[in-house]
Amino acid sequence: MIPFDATADDAGDRLANFEKQLLTLPSRKSYLLPAFHMAQQYLDWLPRESILVIASHLRIPLSEVYATATAYSELRLEKPEYGAWYMCTGVACEAAGAQRIIAAIETVPGKFGRTDCQFLCSLAPICTDHRGRILGRLTENRVRAIFLEDRGD
């Protein structure tokens, strides 16, 4: 999904869509985490605009909504890179050669990040590719093959 951009033409529409969906949640504090998930589902991250409407709908102080959002590692308070690869660097993946894969990914064009354990240790090393697919028992060759495939070679 393309991350929400407040300056883009579709910003108003995307925010309105999210708000419309948000109103389906009961106006209670207990729905804060579901509201965050909903925002990421519609906007890909939690821009300031989304925090404002969540606070207003759930009747929670803005500062508390923000403070709670900062406590979850999977909530994104900054606009993420679009289409990046994320390599797992948990213990099992490191032991299975995550660093070799990282070296291979870094030689091909594209954006790249690292994550902590993704809890798929039996398939190590694993990575989430730019399309959001989980790739297990990953090899350098498979990384290159996917890049070539995308280029249409």
Partner: peptide, 23 residues
Amino acid sequence: AGAGGYVCGEESVILNSIEGARP
């Protein structure tokens, strides 16, 4: 659905999370 954090597996953290408080 949770949103990350090893500490979120701790039972009293889950209670806070469900209530909408800081985990």
